[in-house]
Amino acid sequence: MTYKAILNGKTLKGETTTEAVDAATAEKVFKQYANDNGVDGEWTYDDATKTFTVTE
């Protein structure tokens, strides 16, 4: 399944996708990606669109 992350960081804005077996696995991948890029904020998840959003 393909999951998407939308990054609304102070220094990084954009989107990325990952293939994962479930939302929990995708969330770990996206949170690591955000952390590696200095983005730390509030996370939300929309199951209907399989989209995570982080906003700083």
Rank of each mutant, 00 (worst) to 15 (best):
G14R: 12
Y45N: 00
N37C: 13
G41M: 04
K13L: 07
T51M: 04
G9T: 15
T25A: 14
D36F: 10
K10Y: 11
D22Y: 03
T53M: 09
G14C: 15
T55P: 01
G14Q: 12
N8P: 04
T55D: 06
K4M: 07
V54N: 02
D36N: 09
A48Q: 10
M1Q: 14
E19V: 15
T16F: 15
Y3C: 04
D40L: 12
W43P: 01
N8E: 06
N37W: 14
Y45L: 02
T51D: 00
T17S: 11
T2F: 10
K28D: 05
T11A: 10
V21P: 15
A48D: 11
M1S: 13
E19M: 14
K4F: 12
E56Y: 12
F52E: 00
T11P: 04
V21Q: 12
K28H: 08
F52H: 00
W43I: 04
K4P: 02
D47V: 10
D36C: 09
E56M: 07
A34T: 05
D36R: 10
A26S: 01
T55R: 06
A20N: 03
V21F: 12
Y3K: 03
K10R: 13
T2M: 13
A34N: 01
A23D: 05
D46G: 00
V29W: 14
Y3M: 03
W43M: 04
T17G: 04
N37P: 01
G41F: 05
Y33D: 01
T2Q: 10
V29P: 01
N35I: 15
A48L: 12
T53K: 05
E42S: 10
E27D: 04
L7H: 03
Y3D: 03
G9D: 02
M1L: 12
A48M: 10
A23W: 13
W43R: 01
N8I: 14
T18D: 02
L12M: 13
N35H: 14
V29K: 08
T17M: 10
F52T: 00
D47Q: 10
Q32W: 05
K50A: 06
K31A: 05
I6Y: 07
D47K: 09
A20Q: 06
K50N: 07
E56D: 07
A34Q: 02
E42L: 12
V21Y: 12
T55M: 07
W43D: 01
E27C: 15
L12D: 04
M1V: 13
K28N: 08
K28T: 10
W43L: 03
K13A: 06
I6L: 06
K4V: 09
A23S: 10
D40R: 13
V54E: 00
L12R: 08
E19S: 10
D36K: 09
G41V: 03
A20F: 02
K13D: 04
F52P: 00
E42Q: 11
D46E: 06
A23T: 08
F52Y: 05
D46T: 04
Y33V: 05
E15C: 15
G38V: 02
F52I: 00
F30W: 01
E19C: 14
E56G: 06
T18E: 04
K50I: 02
G9W: 07
G14K: 13
T44K: 08
T18R: 04
F52N: 00
V54L: 14
K4I: 11
W43N: 01
T25K: 06
V21N: 11
E56R: 03
T11W: 13
A5P: 03
D22P: 01
